[in-house]
């Protein structure tokens, strides 16, 4: 192990030996990896391989059966610094806001305007004034190129626009990292590009991201590292050139031959 200097020695996200079982079903069977600050990690793998569960364990929408997740060196599950006591729900809530989550189904709140969706958490969770939050919200909407839609209700937007609002909503908490769970999978093909463009811009701005995706073009061009998940284990891992160009695992090779044109 070589010594790194400065804050970059601490990864933005560190996942250590994560296990998750639902009843008798072992969905995650010991997953470990680091995401360095500013890195984009794409996660690929067949449906049912545990990708969503992994993301949900990282921000604790699911409680891992064992293993730990560290955000900027802070353990999510227990107090840290030798204190093995489990964190309370309230503490986990506090830490969760450091991770922005973007869902396949957008999950915008239909009774709030676009801006209302974006400024809700800055006001309620960060305690910002409405005016401060509005300025921040408009800035975030500009980043997803939707500033002119701030007064619309979600139902009036296309799927691609809704997903971009969802991204803005996550960005408004100024998270340390963004987690994307198949953000374009429920979009019509002609709407995926506008979302991918935004994600590429975020990546280029140095946003730390984990992206579960079937968009192999994005994984290959926009990510620093690619993980291939199979049956709850990381089966292949490396820079995109290696994973796409010369995968070591036979299963990964098969998966790619089905998904890359």
């Amino acid at each position: 192990m070589h010594v790194e200097s400065g804050v970059d020695a601490v990864p933005a996200i560190r996942v250590v030996d994560l296990h998750k079982r639902f009843g008798t079903l072992d969905v995650l069977r010991g997953v470990s990896f680091d995401v360095r600050r500013g890195d984009v990690v794409s996660m690929i793998g067949a449906s049912g391989s545990g990708k969503s569960t992994l993301l949900r364990c990282i921000n604790r929408l699911e409680t891992p059966s064992s293993g730990e997740v560290y955000i900027d060196g802070e353990p999510m599950g227990h107090r840290g610094q030798g204190d093995a006591k489990a964190r309370s729900l309230a503490e986990i809530n506090m830490m969760r806001r450091d991770l922005g989550m973007v869902f396949q189904q957008f999950n915008l709140w239909p009774h709030m305007t676009v801006l209302g969706n974006v400024i809700e958490a800055p006001i309620r969770v960060r305690g910002m004034s409405r005016r401060e939050a509005t300025a921040l919200g408009e800035e975030c909407l500009a980043r997803v190129h939707l500033e002119e839609k701030s007064k619309e209700y979600p139902a009036r937007l296309s799927g691609g626009q809704q997903q971009r609002v969802a991204i803005a909503r996550a960005l408004a908490m100024r998270p340390k990292a963004m987690l994307f769970d198949e953000p374009t999978s429920s979009l019509d093909p002609e709407l995926t590009d506008e979302v991918l463009v935004v994600m590429r811009e975020l990546a280029a701005d140095g946003t730390t991201m984990i992206v579960v995706t079937h968009e192999m073009g994005f994984a290959r061009e926009a990510s620093d590292r690619v993980l291939f998940l199979h049956n709850g284990l990381i089966e292949e891992e490396g820079p995109p050139s290696q994973v796409f160009g010369a995968p070591k695992s036979e299963r990964c090779r098969q998966f790619l031959s089905k998904h890359v044109q």
Binding site: M94, R96, F103, Q105, N107, W109, E120, V125
Partner: peptide
């Protein structure tokens, strides 16, 4: 109400009562 609406709230740090 879809579970995702609540999870979206938790994921931005809102508490269950919020």
């Amino acid at each position: 109400i879809p579970r995702g609406h609540r999870e979206a709230g938790y994921s931005v740090g809102m508490s269950p009562p919020q």
